[in-house]
Amino acid sequence: MAVVSTAVVGVAVVVLVPKAPGWKRVEASFFAGDVFADVFPGLLRAFWLDVKIFAWSAPCILALAMLIALARNVRSPALFPLRLLAALYTDVFRGVPVILTIYLIGFGIPGLGLERPWNSPLLWGSMALVLAYSAYVAEVFRAGIESVHEGQRAAARSLGMSSRQTMTSVVLPQAVRRVVPALMNDMISLQKDVALVSLIGPIELLRQADVDKSLNANFTPYVAAAMIFLAVTIPLTRLADYLLHRQRRRTGATAVA
C-alpha cells in the first residue's frame, strides 16, 4: 500500500509539475545543467570552509555547554552567583536570534581595532556561533543531568564519594548517553547555521553560491548548494534517528531507573 501510494504521488509530481505554465522558465533558471557543472567544483571547495568552521566550533560548543550545565547544577549556596550567571547566559543567548548574535559579535568586536589575526570575521563569526549554540546545548546537557535519578546520587554519596566524583563517575556518564540523540540534532542545525557566518564576510558555500548566482544570472548555484548541505545533513539526521530509536529500545528494557 505504502509503495503504491508513494508511486502515485511520485508520478503525479514528475508528470504534472512540468505541465505548469511557468515550468520552462523555472527549469532554465534553477535547473540549468551547464551552470551546475560549471559552479559545482567551486562550491565544493567553498563548502570546505563550512566544514572547517563546524570542526572547530563543535568541540568548543560541547565544552562550553558542559561547563554552563555544570554551573547551573551546583548546589552549594556559596556558588549561587555562578548558577545565576549561567542561567542569565542561557536566557540571553537563547533569546537572541543566532544571526543577530553573529552580527553583533562579528561586526562589533573587530570594530575595536584589534590587530591581525584578532580582527578576523571568521574568528568572531565562529565565536558567535559557539556562544549562541552553547546556550542551547547547555540546556540539553542540563536536561540529561536532571534526568538521572536522585537515587544514583544518593548511592554514590553514601559510599563516601565526593560530589565531584559522583558527577564524573555516576551522573555524567548516564546523562551524556541519554542526550546523544538530542545533541546530534543540535549538531545538524549547527552544520546548517555555519552558513550564517557568511553574512559577515567569509566566503563559504552559501556566499559562493550567491556570487555564482550573480555571475551567471541564474539560481542553479543555490540548488547545488542545497544539495551539498543535504548530502551531509540527511545521513546525519538518519544517524540521529537511529540512535534515538536504539536508546528508546534500551531504556524500555532497563529495570533500574
Partner: peptide, 12 residues
C-alpha cells in the same frame, strides 16, 4: 553502609 529499597545500582 546503606542499602536502598530501589537498589540504586549504577546501570552503566
Amino acid at each position: 553502609g546503606i542499602v536502598f529499597q530501589q537498589f540504586n545500582l549504577f546501570p552503566h
